[in-house]
Nucleic acid binder design. Structure first.
Lengths: 194, 194
DNA sequence: CCTACCGATCGGTAGG
DNA sequence: CCTACCGATCGGTAGG
């Protein structure tokens, strides 16, 4: 039973690596078969379609991010700490499964319409919860944020460095620099009274 | 004579829009032909190959960025002003030709090996000049930058918001927010003497 | 998990 | 700029 899961997971993992390297549309099932040492048609004993592989990878990441967000919210910590925990979450996702997260980020537009709709709903919910933390931080005078939508996107883009450069820099260094960069960018300057 | 150029440019522009929307590998010459109102084979009266379209788009952007960098360096202004001008440059590129810049950023990996090599050389040179400005700012105590390589990548990633969100926000608002975000992120905190 | 095979689509050419 | 067409490759199925 674990044997079946393992085989399918092995294929899915190999697919994630190929989708990352070559992109989803130009990865062929023959590429994938060669990578896992099977004949092309044999792949279909384990998975339903090429489309399903992409769905599995993207939706899995989406759920992991949602779960991570719930965990962060449950800590009931300050906006500053929540933001730090979210940076950790994005780093952890990138370190644990770099291929899947890259595919999740760059190849989701090739999802079939149905799955894409579900995917975008999850993402929208995640974005909304993230922005709430930024708003909370602004209202409590911890963050200096003029336009929450723009700053949210800036933070998200900033964190993509985790999987675009994960190999080039040590994990802890990356975490320190990114956290510092983001926190300084939105730091509330206290007025100095003379 | 301008007629010839115009027709080719029209096709290249249409290609950029399709490559952006569907990705290079899954854009077919039949898609492109339909978009410009020709039969598939007629495209080849104006361009040499699908590959050449991608090369034109990517290399053109690369040269424009290089030219922009030279212009900025020639101002011989302070690192702070140079950084602001580079942010303007990235914004201007994204506004003037959003499709091409997106393709330049996301689809260059599909360039043929020869062109890719040339492309990466141009990019490496651009990165090097950009980092020099950051170093200059750090040495003159204007920027607080711990790891130049990481901060460079953070800034570049930050600026991708220009073409990922150009439609969602007014240009001037985007420029103000992004410039503020980056400058605060690397701002040198002056020590306060009591 | 394999052999054999399918219809569809691809980038591109010949010839006018 | 079009008609006609090519070989290659695609995702996937039938049948065992």
């Amino acid at each position: 039973m674990t044997e079946v899961l393992t085989r399918k997971q092995e294929i899915t993992q190999a697919a994630a690596e190929l989708f990352q390297k070559k992109g989803y549309p130009s990865t062929s099932m023959r590429d994938l078969a060669a990578k896992v040492g099977l004949e092309p048609s044999s792949i279909y004993s384990h998975i339903k379609s090429k489309e399903d592989l992409l769905s599995d990878i993207c939706m899995n990441c989406a759920f992991e991010f949602s779960k991570g967000m719930q965990w962060v919210l449950n800590t009931k910590s300050s906006p500053t700490v929540k933001l730090e925990l979210l940076i950790d979450l994005h780093l952890k996702m990138a370190i644990d499964n770099p291929s899947s997260v890259t595919v999740f980020n760059d190849e989701w537009r090739f999802l079939s319409p149905d799955v894409k709709e579900e995917f975008l709903e999850l993402r929208k919910s995640y974005e909304s919860l993230f922005k709430n933390i930024l708003l909370e931080g602004r209202e409590s005078k911890r963050f200096s944020i003029n336009n929450v939508d723009i700053v949210f996107e800036l933070i998200i883009q900033t964190m993509t460095i985790f999987y675009k450069s994960a190999k080039k820099h040590p994990k802890e260094e990356l975490k320190r620099q990114v956290t510092h960069f983001i926190k300084e960018a939105i730091r509330q300057k206290l007025e100095v009274r003379n």
